[in-house]
Structures are given as C-alpha cells and as structure tokens.
Amino acid sequence: MKALMQRVTQAKVEVDGECIGQIDHGILLLLGVDKDDSFAKADQLLHKVLHYRFFSDELGKMNNNVQQVAGSLLVISQFTLVADTKKGLRPGFLGAAPPALGEQIYDYFVAQAEQSITLATGQFGADMQVSLTNDGPVTFMLEV
C-alpha cells in the first residue's frame, strides 16, 4: 500500500465539474492499493498518516501531526501510485489491486479514518480533477 501525502492549506476534488470533496488545512492523501494489500496494511498506513509529524510547531519544526493541528484529510484513490516504472517508458500495472479489491480496501481505509479525523474523499474509479495548495511544499511517500 502506498500513499503520497501532501501538507496543504486547501484541496478539493471535482467529478464532472462538481466539487465532491474539499478541505482547508490538512493532508491531501493519494492512496494506491497493491494486489497483496489487506485491511491490516490499511490500518498500519492510517496510523502512520494520522501520527506522522510533518506540521510545524510553535518553533517552526515539524513536530506535530495532523490531529494536533486540527487538520482535515482528503483521500483520493490513485492506482497509478503502484505502477512499476523501473523498466521501459510505459508504466506497468500488474502489481495493482484488481478494481474490486482496491475499492474494498479504499472504502475500509476511509471508514476507519472517519472515526478519527474530519474527512473528505474523491470517488473511486472516477475521472477526477484535484486541485491543491501545497504548504511548504511538503510531500512524503509512505509505504507499508
């Protein structure tokens, strides 16, 4: 399971010109599910996302997590994160979860996250337009 995590001052996602999810200060999380991923891995990744200290404290040091700064989370499914890009000039997707499994684990991740943080989401499998203001910029790739 992979997540590209960006610290944002605002982010939103649109489908067919309609805003379906929006946050202010917090994390834009692009989530990729591998074919070998599980609910246990989703739990591990969520714990890491919620507790990762990459928000500034009063001294400007990255010591706070998203919950400590009362931030929100925007979760977007993005299977391209799990692409194999090691060889050639075209991505390979053999390691990506099949759509049914990907959606099941994505939905589980979202349901678990909703219990701990203010949350918005994209639409699994949709053609989405995502806009954001990256704060810093600060971006990290997390894997479990």
Rank of each mutant, 00 (worst) to 15 (best):
N64A: 09
L29V: 15
F39Q: 15
V66D: 02
K86S: 10
L29G: 00
P91W: 07
L81C: 05
F93S: 12
Q67V: 12
V49A: 06
L74C: 06
E58C: 07
A70T: 12
G92F: 08
L30G: 02
D37P: 03
K61N: 13
V33H: 01
Y52N: 07
A96N: 00
A96M: 10
V66Q: 06
N65E: 11
L89P: 00
F79M: 12
L30V: 07
F55D: 01
N65R: 00
S77K: 04
A97F: 01
A96L: 04
V66W: 03
Q68I: 02
A70P: 02
P99H: 05
F55V: 10
A97C: 04
N63V: 10
A70K: 15
F55L: 03
L81I: 09
A96R: 00
T85V: 15
P99C: 03
A97P: 03
D84V: 09
V82A: 10
A70S: 14
S56Q: 14
F54E: 01
F79R: 09
L74D: 04
V33W: 00
A100Y: 03
A83F: 06
G32E: 06
G88H: 10
G95A: 13
L31N: 02
E58L: 05
Q67C: 09
G32H: 03
L73N: 02
Q67F: 01
V49E: 05
V69T: 09
Q68H: 02
L50A: 06
L73P: 01
K61I: 11
L50S: 09
Q44S: 12
P98A: 04
D84T: 08
D36F: 09
P99Q: 11
P91K: 09
R53L: 08
D43H: 09
L45V: 10
V66K: 06
V66G: 01
K87T: 13
S77V: 09
V33G: 02
L29D: 00
A96H: 06
K48F: 02
V75F: 05
L94D: 15
K48V: 08
Q68S: 10
Q68C: 04
L30M: 08
A70C: 07
P91M: 04
S38Y: 03
K61D: 14
Q44C: 11
V33C: 02
G92N: 15
F55N: 00
T85L: 13
G92R: 14
A40K: 15
L59F: 12
R53V: 08
G32S: 08
L30F: 14
F39Y: 10
L89D: 14
L45P: 04
I76S: 00
R90C: 08
Q44H: 13
K35D: 07
P99F: 01
R90G: 08
P98M: 07
A42R: 02
R90H: 14
P98Y: 00
G32C: 04
A70V: 11
D57T: 09
G32I: 07
F79G: 06
A70H: 11
V75H: 05
V75P: 05
A40V: 12
A83Q: 11
F93R: 11
L59Y: 14
D84H: 12
F39L: 11
G92S: 13
L94S: 15
F93P: 08
V69E: 02
I76A: 02
G95Y: 10
V75E: 01
F39A: 07
L94F: 13
